[in-house]
Design a protein around this nucleic acid. Structure first.
Lengths: 239, 239
DNA sequence: TGTGTAGAACCTATCATACAGGTTTGTCGT
DNA sequence: ACGACAAACCTGTATGATAGGTTCTACACA
């Protein structure tokens, strides 16, 4: 007893892929939004006429891509937008040497030149304050690289958020993982303490420009920041 | 008999998450590259001291993110970079109305302004030819929207590829899915045939600029193209 | 009438086992 | 040396069982 059914397209081979299709389509056709519940596994098992194993692997796949949330005892639900999956993809690309760190920086530069300009135009006061705070905290902790790094990453994420375009925020977030793995290298390369401070001041300049609502100046400082960061990485021998 | 083992961090709850961690870490520590084989499921079952169900769900998750390739009878292998997972995330965001089409276009514009400039600088002759070909094919099939669309998408992907930065290619690819869902709307909005032709000519201009190795002109035409596309979408009532 | 608490009902997480079918590999006959 | 066949190994899917988490209901008690 394992009659093929699965409504339609068995394009990609395997029942699991078909189940994934069916589930995403269900979300689409039912117009489900974040938080809405999906049918239970047993239910899907009946509807799709496959074993629970298949249903579970399909759900697990969706969960891996963060399209749905799963937790014990509760039915799966549609997830809020979250691209940490992409973060894994990028990290994977870097660790398997299919992507270079420099290439990541080029993309980041491209995107953040835009987010910073948008942020300068659209930031709320609270967002401007958050951004300025991160820059300040970087300076205050300038002796502790780990902490500076976390604030640095949060700084860039806050700017992306202030751009008010979630797609930008998503992408910037996706790069945080890689950044965490390479940040220290760039930091160490800045030989003198003065140079490290200058880098932090660059962040403060950016924060000020955003606060002043000056997109051009913000973008210029961001560009400068990236140029120096890339230079630091190259000096460190990361091609 | 199900002693907890799994080396370390059970941070995210669930054995599956832990298994995912273990597998990605295995890839990292063994320095595996694309095509290299992972241990068999049975092997992992023993090593991680969990059931095969868990191992399979972990593998399936990685497979969903396209970090590994799975196929019947063969062991899983490390995958070549492929971000079609992100495509699903973006589509999910759009269908659940967490992202607007316009926001996607803003991101595309930002990125493609860069890819087109890089392409003009770094394209090989073959790549330039491919890009020009796509533009030509768009014109030749201008009566068949479906075909124009496919060549349009391929056009943009070819440019991204010619930028010689795989991360850009990845991201542009990620947007192809959404584009496929909205492209026709923009096309229909261009009322007259003349307007449709003008849009296609815009692509040819871009192709020419890339062929001529002129990044500035290429970027200008790309900007114009996006501005018009967004306008078309807005006219169509897609906020 | 209001409330809270113990179950019942429902669900997911994980395990064990089984079998069908695809891949790989080595062996044996020619 | 070569090619076909078989064994060994692996994955895909199904089934059934148990443990433990969630939610809702109904009943006892205030």
């Amino acid at each position: 007893m394992q009659g093929r059914s699965l409504s339609q397209e068995d394009a990609s081979p395997g029942l699991v892929s078909a189940a994934i299709q069916a589930i995403t389509q269900h979300i689409r056709t039912e117009g489900l939004g974040p938080g809405d519940l999906l049918p239970s596994e047993a239910d899907m098992t009946r509807r799709l006429n496959v074993s629970r194993t298949v249903v579970r692997e399909a759900l697990r796949s969706l969960s891996a891509m963060r399209l749905i949330d799963m937790s014990a005892g509760r039915r799966a639900s549609v997830a809020k937008l979250d691209i940490s999956a992409m973060s894994m993809v990028i990290e994977h690309g870097v660790t398997t040497e299919q992507i270079s760190v420099q290439q990541v920086y080029d993309v980041r530069r491209t995107i953040e030149m835009r987010t910073v300009a948008l942020a300068a135009l659209r930031r709320t006061d609270a967002e401007a304050a958050e951004i300025a705070d991160r820059a300040r905290l970087m300076r205050e902790n300038c002796k502790k690289p780990e902490i500076v790094m976390e604030h640095d990453i949060a700084f860039h994420e806050a700017i992306a958020k202030a751009s008010h375009n979630p797609v930008f925020a998503l992408i910037v977030n996706a790069f945080s993982g890689v950044t965490r793995r390479t940040w220290v290298i760039g930091w160490r390369t800045r030989a003198s303490e003065a140079e490290q401070l200058k880098m932090i001041e660059g962040h403060q300049e950016i924060a000020r420009a955003i606060g002043a609502g000056d997109p051009r100046r913000a973008a210029e400082h961001m560009a400068e920041h990236f140029d120096k960061s890339v230079k630091a990485l190259i000096d460190a021998g990361i091609a």
